[in-house]
Design a protein around this nucleic acid. Structure first.
Lengths: 262, 262
DNA sequence: TGTACATCAGTGAACGCGCGTTCACTGATGTAC
DNA sequence: TGTACATCAGTGAACGCGCGTTCACTGATGTAC
């Protein structure tokens, strides 16, 4: 009948698929609860320690019951990975959306800081997606799209900047070749395969942005996560710790580097 | 008696502590074999899969026998971590030593490439020291010194460059403040705590190098390992893969960035 | 509107696995006199 | 140089643990007529 039953209508906002059966709603609810508990354990112990049995125990279920919801532990992990990618991306996107569209440098910096803040708040989720791979786990294709969201966001900022003419147009006198960042942005030769890779990537995520700038953005992208990983994984202890100022400094350098000067 | 026994004198180079007892030599030998087998399993399976029982099995011993050599699994891990730090550092130092002392930029680049090459050849060892921390494992203080060797090496290259006057002395006209790398090297203000951190670090590993350059080297350092991690952990698949040219490009940018122009 | 059947969530027991670590022991190696 | 004792490497059994996954089952929910 696909009817509306007069049960515990959760007083949340009107759900899209309203004409759902009680069973379907229960299933969604429990799937959500499983993921939440798994995320809790992930946050507390790390991915390697995440166990189906512990999740079931905590939910008051028997471990085999979870198999109604996730065919295996790896599938649960996959769901968490997707959620984590979505969470970082969402927090960066929120930070970006708060700023005026034309504040390119500020947007770039805000994204960097939002990502770092998320990582510090969720170190194990960060490690799950940007740390060493979980042994024996092979990331399926479903993770590709959410993983790309952050890259797409950075691409959009650059794209907006270039579309608005905020690129290096004004100041492109190559006086110190190979040394002046802004000059380099458009006049640089990219070695070997990188030229094609940057062009292809630019076409996807940064239309209108010159390939050398895309290449630099790629560098900046690895830099950003390298820095966050070093901070979270303890490599900065003894040198740049606490790391806030170091991070701010580096992020500013990166903004310069990709051609978004002050 | 601490005498020299007429046993199987391994025909290796004359050992330093020659007057050692047979037992002592056997102990060293077996300790070495345990570490080698453990390293083999680490390379094949990753740190999380490393098990004392498997190591013992492979060596034809009973698992409890390993406890004569390592008081626990964590101590074996610690030994492997130290070896890994020593291995990266040694390979970078070798690359550095092959070049003329005054070829500062080439030395810097050679170190970067040597580290990447080592990482690609030993991905699990790399992950052990630069990846997400092994859950439940707390790195002891013995690992600090070997971990610092790579940083010290980069510091030495910079220190040599500055001592030789290869720093930005020649070209320091701040025409495009905040944009020209070389000019920035000495004229940049470091934010907040970073100034002190960079100064302290410089005093340790880069005497004579201005603090802003040390700060930039710190950025470069995180960049280098960020890039390698991204490559090894599969984050570059679909964008800059294969990554050789990308790496070469980024390394060159980094050399510029720390004030070692062509 | 009421009944007969199909679907599906959750149970409880079990399989088979591998792990780190402890402990009392045997027998070989080293040491003191 | 020879003997008595101390040290230490390696054995084998055991403890106690937690895990992922399968399977036959019960009972509630949903559906077709």
């Amino acid at each position: 009948m696909t009817q509306v039953q007069g049960q515990d209508d959760t007083q949340s906002a009107p759900r899209p698929g309203a004409g759902r059966t009680a069973r379907e709603r229960a299933r969604e609810q429990i799937t959500r609860e499983i993921k939440e508990e798994a995320r809790r354990q992930l946050a507390a112990e790390g991915a390697q320690r995440l166990s189906l049995r512990a999740v079931a125990r905590e939910l008051g279920m028997v471990s085999s019951a979870l198999y109604r919801y996730f065919p295996s532990r790896d599938d649960l992990l996959t769901a968490l990975i997707i959620d984590a990618y979505d969470a970082v991306a969402a927090s960066a996107e929120r930070a970006d959306a708060r700023l005026p569209r034309a504040a390119f440098r500020a947007r770039w910096l805000a994204c960097c800081h939002a990502i770092r803040a998320w990582a510090i708040a969720s170190p194990h989720e960060y490690a799950l997606i940007y740390g060493s791979p979980v042994p024996g786990y092979q990331a399926p294709q479903q993770t590709i799209a959410p993983a790309a969201r952050v890259a797409i966001l950075f691409g959009r900022v650059l794209s907006d900047a270039w579309a608005a003419g905020a690129g290096p147009a004004g100041s492109s006198r190559p006086e110190h070749p190979g040394q002046n960042i802004v000059d380099q942005n458009t006049h640089q030769l990219l070695p070997g395969l990188l030229a094609g890779q940057a062009a292809a990537l630019g076409a996807e995520i940064g239309p209108g942005v010159p390939a050398p700038v895309i290449a630099r953005a790629l560098v900046a992208w690895t830099q950003l996560f390298g820095m966050i990983s070093f901070e979270l994984f303890g490599q900065l202890v003894g040198s740049a710790d606490p790391s806030d100022d170091f991070f701010g400094f580096a992020a500013a350098q990166l903004a310069d580097f990709v051609g978004l000067p002050q």
